[in-house]
């Protein structure tokens, strides 16, 4: 026996390999590594727990992300880091839970649209904090919203007086929708009897000298027509920084600056 290994005492030696377990099994406390199957179930349990926890914590914790997106992001970043941090962990330890969380995310979001009970469990509904001009104190208490916070939300949406608010709704994503009284709402062209034309959005068909084919398809132009259009502006596609066409066919062209112009 090696000098560095302390010899077991005679009494202990006689018990070696006897009975149901070995001496090591009886007296060694081992480091506990988690097997892959446990990682899988742990991911499932943590995923559902986080979903329910955030659901009950309320909308304000969720922020701009969908609840399942938030949980996915929280878990995925941690799981992905595991095999990078510790080379003793096989890659499948991380790959399986990542694929699992992705599947759960898709299945739950899809099922929510089809199954009402899942929607009730995993999704909250909008809460009226101010309803028809009346502040719902019970809902404020339930959602843990102070008057100062409500005022701040109103100010951020351009309403300075609570009495001007018709509806204040706490949406599923944790954001407020403030709808002012009709007398305080900004006038629209319809209010003023002005006929407005809907120009739609501008599709950027050339960006930094490159044709964006998806955007081009939306405008109904072909590449040949686009080259002709560029020629009308006395430049090639490569000379254009942005060329946008809106739904009514209005064209906006911004040419690239030459090096000489820049200096």
């Amino acid at each position: 026996m090696d000098d560095r290994t302390p010899p077991p005492s005679a009494g202990v030696r006689s018990t070696l390999l006897t009975g149901n377990g070995t001496l090591c099994e009886k007296y060694t406390v081992r480091e506990r590594n988690v097997p892959m199957i446990a990682i899988f179930f742990r991911a499932l349990i943590i995923y559902i727990t986080l979903m329910l926890t955030l659901r009950f914590m309320g909308k304000r914790q969720v922020g701009e992300l969908e609840m399942s997106d938030l949980i996915g992001s929280l878990l995925l970043s941690e799981i992905a880091a595991m095999p990078i941090d510790d080379p003793d962990i096989p890659l499948l330890y991380a790959l399986i839970p990542i694929l699992f969380i992705m599947s759960m995310e898709i299945i739950i979001t899809f099922s929510k649209t089809k199954l009402n009970f899942l929607k009730k469990i995993f999704e909250s509904h909008p809460i009226f904090i101010i309803e028809q001009g009346v502040i719902r104190e019970d809902q404020m208490r339930r959602m843990r919203i102070s008057v100062e916070e409500l005022l701040s939300e109103c100010r951020q949406q351009g309403v300075v007086n609570l009495s001007d608010v018709r509806y204040a709704i706490l949406e599923q994503n944790g954001k407020f929708s403030i709808i002012p009284n009709a007398s305080k709402a900004p006038a629209t062209p319809a209010d003023l009897g002005i006929k407005s034309v809907d120009v739609g959005i501008m599709h950027s068909v050339i960006l930094d000298g490159t044709i964006e084919k998806n955007a081009l398809a939306k405008t109904g132009y072909t590449e040949t027509q686009l080259h002709e259009l560029c020629a009308r502006y006395r430049c090639a596609v490569g000379d254009i920084f942005v060329l946008g066409i809106d739904d009514l066919g209005h064209i906006t062209v911004v040419k690239k600056k030459t090096e000489r112009e820049d200096t």
Partner: peptide, 19 residues
């Protein structure tokens, strides 16, 4: 005897962890 005992224990530990 000692290393045999340790090996048995190690395999048993590995088996339990994979269950």
């Amino acid at each position: 005897i000692l290393t045999l005992s340790m090996l048995q224990s190690g395999l048993s530990h590995l088996r339990e962890q994979s269950l």
